[in-house]
Design a protein around this nucleic acid. Structure first.
Length: 597
RNA sequence: GCGCCCGUAGCUCAGUGGAUAGAGCGUUAGGUUGCGGACCUAAAGGUCGUGGGUUCGAGUCCCGCCGGGCGCACCA
């Protein structure tokens, strides 16, 4: 499936895909306008100021439910502009919110508003209660279209944003190690979140298919084939010996017959032929390792293709025409300092060979040439020094800096029995990604990385991640889901039916049903935040909260109760909604939502 | 030396400038004649590295300092 097909195939629903807080925000905006129109609040100087104020209205779910379902700091924020105290502004807005709710209730026509009650608290917070019927409508709608839940609907007629996420991009000179794991998960999780938020995402892997590292690999394989020792700077892992033993006859023939006058870098001598063969074998292995993690790429782009297809040359021509290049000391320099960099950067060495940076420039041109609105690079923190020059080059090529974003992923120290495990591909002392996953499981690993900010260095405690018990939060969320399904199964076996509508089940705040429903309905906001900040911790936090909310509900409310069939039927519907939301949040993370454990 | 990232509970980590700084694990004390105890309830545990500043309000923004990581190539 292409990225465009995938984006189109994700079911979306305008009602389910709109975070409730947007609806609340709009209601506050209307209230502010009414209060100003009626003269209760003064008009700010200039119409533009009012629009800015309304656009900037912030609505959040307060930490404590005593503060209502939603709260806004709009009164404190606009105090200066409106020249009134926060409490006075908040009171005026609350009045208008109540007035609107009342008018709608008695107006008959049109939809009901989102707010049922509003009050002023603390230094000027506006605390609001959701109209209970809105919750019931949402819960009913998500059960009718469970696959659309968690996917945001586009606002207005905005065109779909096309994003390229390049990640992993480890050179195929050895199997992926645990060191590559974080980048793989972070990139994939970001891609999933952006897709859920309504963007079209291409997952891309960039790799070296020629050059120094591939030659070293070739030399190492040949050395072992010939019974010699691998050179000091060669590759020494066990996989090299495997490759040496498995060189197919036709590759060996081609290697023997390779000539300096060959047509491409890949067959100019024996080392190049063997190196190219070995690295392609490794690349295929990497592809299947990643697939086992649930990470699949749309595009595998080789560095060499950027030259054979003329992208590098084209980009260089463009930079030259714009005056951003300079010959100096026999090399070709990009005037990066003109864009604020510390120093200018070489793109073509005096030997005539391009640098890696030269390839990067061609790649920028190639990517934007494919029509992306936004490029995301998921890099290790050790690459932070190259961020500025690549974005500068992009700007010099005519693309705004804001369209290129580098997400730097911090180090992971893998610790076993309190001792850090050393990782060196050359020395052959590393733990492969395959080994790690076999030990701890994909779900557990995904949760581990999803729940931590990519920019923070972390210690990965292998024992803790391996534990298949309550020490591991992923099982807590999965367990809650299994329990929900178990309840639904049991009810079904006893011949109980699920109610056709939630009705007033979630209206009474003193009942356990109301608290659970309010968590269930929050997922779209969580997705929106995750996409906006390019972070996934919010989703794991949400899944944990939902699981905890369900546990509390389960303790306080009897769902399957033959003595109260009507209440049971409604609660079964609520459980169904909770399961839908929990499954959707796990699906977003690429984690399974088992029906039984 | 210069630049970037980080410093939050015993441990591992959350925390779009907002209300009493949270979660899991660990520790302590309890809970199942009820739909899955891989569960639940409660308690103890914090000078948010440190000193200033910005403002109605700072863990969050700005500056200095301390501590840790990374980067400063005609390497890849």
């Amino acid at each position: 499936m292409t990225p465009a097909e995938r984006a189109a195939a994700l079911p979306r629903d305008p009602f389910l895909g709109t975070p409730v807080r947007h609806v609340v925000r709009d209601a506050i905006g209307r209230a502010v306008r009414r209060a100003i129109a009626s003269g209760v609040l003064p008009a700010p100087d200039g119409a533009e100021a009012l629009e800015t104020l309304i656009r900037g209205i912030e609505v959040e779910v307060p930490a404590s439910s005593e503060h209502g379902d939603y709260a806004s700091n709009v009164a404190m924020k606009s105090s200066k502009l409106l020249k009134r105290g926060p409490a006075q502004i908040a009171a005026a807005i609350a009045d208008e919110l109540r007035a609107e709710a009342k008018e709608r209730l008695h107006g008959g026509a049109g939809s009901l508003g989102p707010i049922d009650g509003a009050e002023v608290a603390g230094p000027g917070f506006l605390n609001m209660r959701l109209r209970a019927g809105l919750l019931a409508d949402l819960l009913d709608a998500m059960i009718a279209a469970p696959d659309a839940w968690g996917h945001l609907a586009p606002e207005g007629s905005a065109a779909t944003t096309r994003v390229n996420v390049e990640f992993v991009s480890a050179n195929p000179t050895g199997p992926l190690t645990v060191g590559n794991a974080r980048g793989a998960f972070v990139g994939d999780l970001l891609a999933r979140v952006l897709e859920a938020a309504g963007q079209e995402v291409t997952r891309e892997y960039y790799f070296n298919d020629f050059g120094e590292q591939v030659r070293r690999l070739g030399e190492s394989v040949i050395a072992l084939r010939d019974g010699r020792e691998v050179a000091e700077d060669g590759y020494k892992g066990d996989y090299v010996a495997t490759l040496a033993a498995e060189i197919p006859p036709e590759v060996a023939d081609r290697a023997r017959n390779a000539r300096e006058a060959a047509v491409s870098e890949h067959d100019k001598d024996e080392i190049a032929v063997i190196g190219a063969w070995a690295s392609e074998r490794i690349r295929v292995g990497i592809q299947s390792s990643l697939a086992a993690l649930g990470v699949e790429f749309d595009v595998w782009r080789s560095e060499g293709s950027l030259y054979t297809e003329g992208h590098v040359e084209r980009a260089v021509g463009k930079l030259r025409a714009a005056g951003w290049l300079e010959e100096r000391d026999g090399a070709l320099w990009f005037k990066s300092t003109a864009f604020g960099d510390d120093k200018d950067r070489v793109i073509k060495k005096s030997t005539g060979a391009y640098t890696y940076f030269g390839s990067d420039i061609g790649y920028i041109e190639e990517k934007f040439g494919r029509g992306f609105d936004h490029l995301v690079y998921v890099w290790g923190v050790d690459h932070h020094g190259t961020v500025a020059r690549v974005r500068n080059a992009g700007e010099a090529l005519g693309y705004e800096k804001s369209r290129m974003e580098m997400l730097l992923v911090a180090w992971v120290r893998f610790v076993r029995d309190g001792v850090e495990m050393s990782m060196s591909k050359r020395a052959g002392t590393f733990v492969t990604l395959d080994d790690l996953l076999e030990e701890i499981g994909v779900d557990s690993a995904r949760w581990y990385f999803a729940s931590r900010s990519a920019s923070t260095a972390i210690d990965f405690d292998i024992e803790a991640a391996t534990a298949r018990n309550s020490e591991n939060p992923v099982y807590y969320a999965q367990y809650a889901h299994a329990r929900m399904q178990s309840i639904l199964r049991k009810a079904n076996a006893e011949g109980m039916t699920v109610a056709a509508e939630i009705g007033d089940l979630v209206d009474d705040l003193s009942r356990p049903d109301a608290a659970l429903a309010r968590v269930v309905v929050r997922l779209p906001e969580v997705v929106e935040d995750a996409a906006a900040h390019h972070e996934t911790q919010g989703i794991t936090t949400y899944a944990s909260e939902l699981a905890a909310a369900f546990s509390a509900f389960y303790r306080d409310a009897k769902v399957v109760d033959s003595g109260a069939p009507e209440l049971s039927a409604k609660r079964l519907r609520l459980v169904q909604a909770a399961a839908t939301s929990l499954a959707a949040s796990l699906r977003l993370l690429g984690i399974s939502a088992p029906a039984e454990m």
